[in-house]
Design a protein around this nucleic acid. Structure first.
Lengths: 244, 244
DNA sequence: TTTAAATGTCTATTGATATAGACAACCATA
DNA sequence: TATGGTTGTCTATATCAATAGACATTTAAA
C-alpha cells in the first residue's frame, strides 16, 4: 500500500473516500497480521491528510461496526466480510452463501399485482398487460442485510405465491408447492450504480455507496420463464462469481 | 419520479448525489420524450434543494459530456450509452461488443515482468515466484475508453506476448501465434468499487464514479490456465450479461 | 515505575458546500 | 415585438469539511 492519493474538491469528502478505501483494504485482508488498522498518524501520512480527517473516516467505520477504537492500544478490526455469490444455472440466494455464513434469512417487504410492461412481457414471454405477482424481498446474512429484490411471476400460474412465500420464506419452496419442481437461471445481467433512497434504508448504506444490480430470468425445466427479478446488493458486502 | 429525498451531512456533497441520480435517470431513459433534463427550478423543487445546488450537479454532468446547457432553452441530453458485455466461456473484449459499436480498439499501456504472488500462482496453477508477463491494456469503443485491464501470462509459454500484442492489438491473435489455437473463460469474479486515480485518468471518469471489476481466468483447450486478468470498466458505460 | 505509543478532546482558522435573493441574457412563440 | 420561461452571473451569509497545534488519557512494554 504505497502513497495513496486522494481526490479533493470532487463533492466527496476526504474522510468518506478514506473510509471507503480502508473498508476495502480490510475486506481485502491487508491488515490481517495483527487484526488492527495502522495508527492514525501513520494513515494520515499515507493518505497525505490531517490526523483529524483520518479520525472522521475511522469514526464512520466504527459507526458501521467494522472497527473499534481502543484508547492507548489502537483501532481493532471488528468484522470483515464480502460474501461470494455464485451465478450459475442453479443460482439461489440462501444455498449459494449457505456455507459462508451461520444464518441466512429472507423477508417479504411488500407484495402486489402488476400488469406486464413491454419489457417484462418480453422477458417472461407473455402478453403485455398480462397480470403479474410482484414480490419485494430483503435478504439477510448473519443479521446483516445484503440484498434487496423485486421479483415478478406470471399471475396465472403463481397467483398466491406471496402467501406461500410469506410462510416459507423461500422462493424455491414456494415454487415446489405450486408445481415447479425445479428451475434454472437463464440469463443474468449485472450493472453497478449508486445507492438510491430505498437502498440506503433497506440495506443500511450511506450515500455514495455502491450497489451491484443483478437482473435475472429463471425458467422451469421446460424452459418456460417463471420469474424475472431485479436484485440490488451492497457492493462492499458481496462478490459475484461466474463459473463457466 | 416522485419527491426524491437526498441525504445530508454524509460526506457526499448534495450536488454530487444529485448528479449521480440525474445520470442514472438519463441512462434509464426517463427524459427521452423531449431529450432534455427538466428545468433547474423544477429539479430544485423535486430534490428539495436550492437552484444553485442543481446548477453544480448539472455543471458536473456537462463536464462529463452527458448534458449541454443552452441559455434560454434548457439543458439538452448529449449522450447516453451502456454497452453490454457477454460473459461466457467465449468472452473476448472486441467480439462481444462488436455489433453494438462502430469501432473497437485495444492499446497497450505498459508491459513488464512480475513474479507470481501466491494468489496469482494459485489461479494460474504454477509455482509461486515463477516468472510472469504483465500486460496493461486499455479498451476503447467508438473512441471512448471503457475498460482498463491488467493481465498476467506464464512467461515460459508466452515470453514475448507483449511484442505480438503490441503489433496485433489482440490477445486472441497473440495466443494463436504462440500456439494457443483457442481458449475459454474458466471463471469470472465481479465486484464494484469507487474509481481510483488510475481509473479517473485512463477511463476519463470523475471522482466518486463507479467501476465494475472483473477478475477472470482463461485456460486453453487442455484446461491449462493461460491468462489471469483484472479488468476495470466504467460502470455507467457497460453492463455484464451472463448466459447460462 | 517510567516511557513510548496510541487514541480522545479542545480551540482556532481556512476553504468548500449550500442557501437566499436579485437581475441579466437568451430563446421560442404568441 | 412583446412576453414567459429558461440559463447565466453576481453578492451575501451560514454551515460543513479540513488543517493546525496543544495537551489529556489510556495501554503495553521497557
Amino acid at each position: 500500500m504505497a502513497g495513496q492519493r486522494i481526490q479533493r474538491q470532487t463533492g466527496v469528502a476526504l474522510w468518506r473516500q478514506i473510509a471507503d478505501r480502508i473498508r476495502t483494504s480490510i475486506n481485502h485482508g491487508d491488515f490481517d497480521e495483527n487484526g488492527m488498522v495502522p495508527p492514525e498518524t501513520t494513515l494520515a501520512l499515507q493518505f497525505g491528510v490531517n490526523r483529524h480527517t483520518i479520525r472522521s473516516a475511522l469514526a464512520a467505520l466504527a459507526q458501521e461496526g467494522i472497527v473499534r477504537a481502543v484508547q492507548g492500544r489502537g483501532t481493532l478490526i471488528e468484522r470483515k466480510e464480502r460474501l461470494s455469490f455464485p451465478i450459475s444455472r442453479r443460482t439461489r440466494f440462501s444455498q449459494g452463501i449457505g456455507d459462508q455464513v451461520r444464518e441466512t434469512r429472507s423477508m417479504l417487504l411488500a407484495s402486489g399485482e402488476d400488469v406486464a410492461s413491454s419489457e417484462l412481457a418480453k422477458q417472461l414471454r407473455i402478453e403485455p398487460g398480462a397480470p403479474l405477482i410482484r414480490l419485494e424481498t430483503l435478504g439477510h446474512a448473519d443479521h446483516r442485510p445484503v440484498s434487496r429484490a423485486t421479483s415478478w411471476f406470471p399471475a396465472d400460474r403463481f397467483g398466491n405465491i406471496a402467501e406461500i412465500y410469506r410462510v416459507t420464506g423461500s422462493i424455491t419452496k414456494a415454487f415446489k408447492e405450486l408445481g415447479v419442481a425445479d428451475y434454472v437461471r437463464v440469463v443474468t445481467e449485472i450493472t453497478a450504480t449508486h445507492a438510491d433512497e430505498g437502498d440506503l434504508t433497506d440495506l443500511q448504506l450511506s450515500p455514495g455507496a455502491i450497489v451491484l444490480v443483478a437482473q435475472a430470468l429463471n425458467a422451469d425445466l421446460d424452459n418456460v420463464p417463471v420469474q424475472y427479478s431485479i436484485s440490488r446488493f451492497a457492493a462492499d458486502r458481496v462478490r459475484f462469481t461466474v463459473e463457466n
